[in-house]
């Protein structure tokens, strides 16, 4: 999971992450618990999350 500079840190992704794998402090950060499922991508209001191929 790559979080780009569009991220404002609103935390919307963290609330939809089923693994509790996103920490937010000014910017979102995917932790080791992330399984690259990509659910968060849909919910990001600023297109800040990209799933790595």
């Amino acid at each position: 999971m790559k979080i780009n500079d569009n991220c404002v840190g609103c935390g919307q992704c963290a609330s939809f992450c089923k693994k509790g794998a996103i920490e937010v402090k000014g910017k979102a950060l995917a932790t080791d618990a992330c399984v690259d499922c990509g659910v968060c991508v849909l919910y990001c209001p600023v297109k800040a999350i990209e799933v790595l191929a």
């Binding site: 404002v8 840190g9 609103c10 935390g11 937010v24 000014g26 209001p45």
Partner: peptide, 11 residues
Amino acid sequence: LLIQSYHDSWP
């Protein structure tokens, strides 16, 4: 619980 920030395109 959660820290949420808002600016620029999601202000």
